[in-house]
Design a protein around this nucleic acid. Structure first.
Length: 276
DNA sequence: CGGCAGGTGCGGA
DNA sequence: TCCGCACCTGCC
């Protein structure tokens, strides 16, 4: 993690249970860290890992739901987490656009190698993001050599905006959904799909389900309705009517559960719809 | 070699 | 407001 200019190694350890959560965090650093730095870091970690959001009402309401009973039994406690800073999330979302996962990984690895740094701690070596000004001081042509294609312009423009301090990401925390969406929409290269993803993963709005991508549509058609292809509107209406303010959280429980099951048992129809 | 992928900005209707 | 189109790159 890059926090206030310092590269850190973080190690989380589970020391609780789902209903009595408790986490131990070890922080590795090149230099000794002051108490005030650690206090601010702890507050940031609490936000980034969404420790304070209470979703017990979701379990109370849907533990017996026909589609959620299984996923909740297997995944109770799962919540959206940002883990990254807003800038870092934006970089990830830009590389996700119009690309398969494989290609996204390739683009990010190239960017990490050129602009980021490696951090070794506790027997692991992991990449740390670059600060926005590192890219802002670079050029679009330089970015093109990272094989990010037309995304180079988006990466540059967003990096410049963050480097100049014109985005107040902390102030957006706790702002209404529409305000956050409106601010994200101002960023070049960020549109409806990225906004929806970030409203959930970075701002923890559990109801930010207003669109569904083609492959999600195919998979949900099959999973929920047993049909090959249901109109996107029908799927969205289903989630809204059944799960109201928890509709995207419900979507994720169903989705993550399906993909976890896929790791253990082969789900034949799913393999045909999947693109990694 | 053409089509397309977990989209988006842009110009024109 | 809606629609068609181009767009880097890699894989099928």
């Amino acid at each position: 993690m890059l926090w206030q200019g310092k590269a850190l190694g973080l190690k989380f350890r589970n020391e609780g249970t789902t209903n009595r959560p408790r986490v131990r965090l070890n922080v590795y650093s090149r230099n000794r860290l002051t108490q005030s730095y650690l206090d601010e870091l702890a507050a940031e970690i609490i936000w980034r890992f969404n420790f304070d959001q209470n979703i017990s009402e979701f379990f109370r309401r849907y533990s017996s739901d026909s589609h959620l009973a299984g996923p909740i039994r297997r995944w109770k406690g799962m919540k959206p987490i940002a883990a990254n800073s807003l800038y870092e999330s934006l970089m990830i979302y830009i590389t996700l656009q119009n690309a398969t996962v494989r290609r996204t990984v390739q683009m990010l690895e190239n960017l990490f190698r050129c602009f980021g740094q490696k951090v070794s701690f506790d027997g692991k070596t992991l990449s740390v993001f670059w600060p926005p000004d590192t890219v802002a001081k670079s050029t679009v042509d330089q970015l093109r050599t990272m094989k990010v294609g037309y995304r180079a312009k988006s990466i540059m423009m967003i990096s410049e905006q963050f480097a100049s301090g014109s985005v107040d990401s902390i102030a957006l925390r706790g702002a209404p959904k529409e305000v956050v969406a409106q601010e994200l929409d101002k960023l070049y290269g960020i549109g409806p799909a990225s906004i929806q993803g970030m409203l959930f993963e970075d701002f923890y709005f559990l109801d930010a389900l207003d669109m569904i991508s083609p492959w999600e549509r195919k998979i949900m058609s099959r999973l929920l309705f047993g049909e090959h292809l249901v109109p996107a509107e029908g799927i969205l209406r289903f989630f809204k009517e059944k799960y109201s303010e928890y509709r995207l959280l419900a979507f994720h429980y169903i989705w993550e559960d399906l993909f976890w099951r896929r790791k253990h048992e082969r789900i034949e129809w799913l393999e045909k719809e999947i693109r990694l």
